[in-house]
């Protein structure tokens, strides 16, 4: 083995020490981030798991004092409102994203749209609720599932638009050129070649946006309002897990608190499932040509 000059050796020790110190700091920081997350999740499971049973998903809420009952209507309501919101947001948001990434678009219009989307993403969700109350609930003469879905869609659309734009901008320009050079019209090129290549990225963006809005309470308070009974009508108030959890959590009743914990757990589980789907899609990676 070659002998090393002592000062070289000392320098190497110092480098090793620095590397070790930085690594320790990074690990500590990671733990610090993860600890609250697992505390929250753990506590949620501990408190909520007792309230979860078949009846929770199939039964209606019971009046205070009566045991049993569930939040079946709220689970269904959340699925309906979030589902409808996603459909609306995907139609408008993906379309907007495609427009923003088109090379031929008017640059100042695109910048305006992009700015508006960014501002809209920053608007407090309660403001979105009030806005939809004013433009949908009042003219329609009452709270409704439709209004709730619109409120969530307003929050979701800018997220979808921006992530779509980003996914599309990752598509190599050569693909667009190749398609145009084959005599494929521009709109077909954008849809069938560019958007199709970015489909996985777009799907990921949509699901992440969906997971974010699924947990929103404020926009639903004066739009979907909540409902103690089964309802799927778009024109009538509808129950949603978030609103139900909120109502139950601020009540003074022990039973209701237990139900609220169970509701929170179910909601979190639903979001985690969506996140899992996202990971399995994006984990396979966007296939791009070399």
């Amino acid at each position: 083995m070659k002998t090393v000059e002592p000062h070289v050796d000392a320098r190497r020790m110092w480098r090793k020490f620095k590397s070790g110190a930085m690594m320790t700091a990074a690990v500590l920081a990671t733990l610090l981030t993860l600890v609250p997350l697992f505390l929250v999740l753990g506590y949620l499971v501990k408190q909520g798991v007792n309230g979860i049973n078949w009846a929770f998903f199939t039964r209606l809420p019971r009046p205070v004092g009566e045991p049993g009952g569930g939040m079946g209507n709220a689970v269904l309501g959340t699925l309906e409102v979030v589902g409808l919101a996603s459909v609306l947001a995907v139609i408008v948001g993906v379309g907007t994203g495609i427009y923003l990434s088109e090379p031929g678009r008017n640059r100042s219009v695109a910048n305006g749209v992009r700015f508006a989307a960014d501002v809209l993403m920053g608007v407090p969700s309660i403001v979105v609720g009030i806005f939809v109350y004013a433009v949908v609930v009042r003219p329609m003469g009452g709270f409704s599932a439709l209004a709730g879905a619109i409120a969530l869609a307003v929050m979701m659309t800018p997220l979808v638009a921006r992530t779509t734009e980003q996914a599309l901008s990752m598509v190599p320009a050569e693909l667009r050129e190749s398609a145009l050079a084959l005599g494929i019209p521009r709109w077909r090129t954008s849809l069938s070649v560019v958007a199709r290549t970015a489909a996985r990225g777009i799907t990921t963006g949509v699901l992440l946006a969906l997971a974010r809005i699924a947990g929103e309470t404020a926009p639903l308070l004066f739009t979907a309002f909540g409902n103690q009974y089964w309802s799927t009508s778009l024109r009538r108030p509808i129950a949603a897990l978030t609103v139900q959890v909120y109502t139950y959590a601020i009540s003074p009743f022990e039973d209701w608190h237990r139900q609220a914990w169970a509701g929170a757990l179910v909601l979190t589980a639903m979001v985690l499932v969506v996140e899992g789907v996202v990971r399995s899609i994006s984990g396979r990676g966007l296939r791009t040509p070399r």
Binding site: S178, A179, L182, G183, P185, A199, R287
Partner: peptide
């Protein structure tokens, strides 16, 4: 678009559609 159907083109970098 009609002209491009009559005059085909091959580019520098091979770019098959990945999907």
């Amino acid at each position: 678009v009609q002209i491009r159907r009559r005059v085909g083109m091959v580019f520098q970098k091979p770019a098959p559609f990945p999907t």
